[in-house]
Computed example of a mutant assay.
Amino acid sequence: MGLIEEIVAMRGGSGHSGRLLGEFRRTALLVPLSEGEGSGLMSGWQGGVRWIYAFTDEAALARFAQQRGAAHREWEYLAILGARLVDEVIPTIDGPTGVAVDVADEDGSMLFPPVVGIVPDAVAVDTGDAA
């Protein structure tokens, strides 16, 4: 199964967290870039956590753009493996940071929070050692 199928299985109650995380880590995700000065990876804040927006394919990114009323513009994005995103990028960001996958898809989205087992322990919020 691919990441989308693992998300569906998890949301449906028949998934396995280890398989889901494995697929997330192996999947090339599309991460839109912010516009303007100081641009970087597009993210939002919820519950004291920065969530990097990531998408499983261009169609999912297009639905996100449509939902934001910005489908008319060209969206630049970075293609990056989920493993590299959580292991190498997230540790360089100040504060708790997780990944929100396919956030425009009500029944197909999934959050990968900044906790042990998903992000490196040094930046996980559930160790007491988070930066």
Rank of each mutant, 00 (worst) to 15 (best):
F64S: 05
G44Q: 14
H16I: 06
A122H: 12
A124T: 11
S109T: 04
D129R: 15
F24W: 06
R50V: 08
V101P: 02
I7N: 08
F112V: 04
I118S: 10
V31D: 12
Q66K: 10
G69C: 06
S14V: 09
R19Q: 10
G48V: 00
L111H: 07
A104I: 05
G82K: 03
E74N: 14
V123L: 03
V49F: 14
H72L: 08
D57I: 02
V31K: 02
R25L: 13
E88V: 11
V125L: 15
F112Y: 14
G15R: 00
Q66D: 07
F64Y: 10
I7D: 03
Q67G: 04
I4T: 10
D107K: 08
G15V: 09
L61A: 04
V86W: 09
P32F: 11
Q46N: 07
E74W: 09
L33G: 04
F64W: 13
R26S: 11
G47F: 00
S109Q: 15
A131I: 10
L29Q: 00
A124E: 04
F112H: 07
S39Q: 04
V89L: 10
Q46C: 09
S43L: 11
F64N: 02
R11G: 07
P32I: 11
A83N: 11
D129E: 15
D107R: 09
G48T: 15
T92I: 02
A28M: 09
A122W: 15
A83W: 07
G18M: 03
F64T: 00
T27E: 08
P113F: 02
A70F: 13
I80D: 01
G117Y: 05
L21A: 11
L41A: 11
V31L: 13
E6H: 07
Y77Q: 12
A28V: 07
G98P: 03
V115Q: 09
D105K: 05
V125K: 06
D126P: 08
E35S: 14
S34I: 05
D105Y: 02
E6R: 14
G22N: 15
T127G: 15
D129I: 06
P114V: 04
M1Y: 04
V119A: 13
G44V: 12
S39F: 10
R50W: 01
L3M: 09
Q46W: 01
L20H: 03
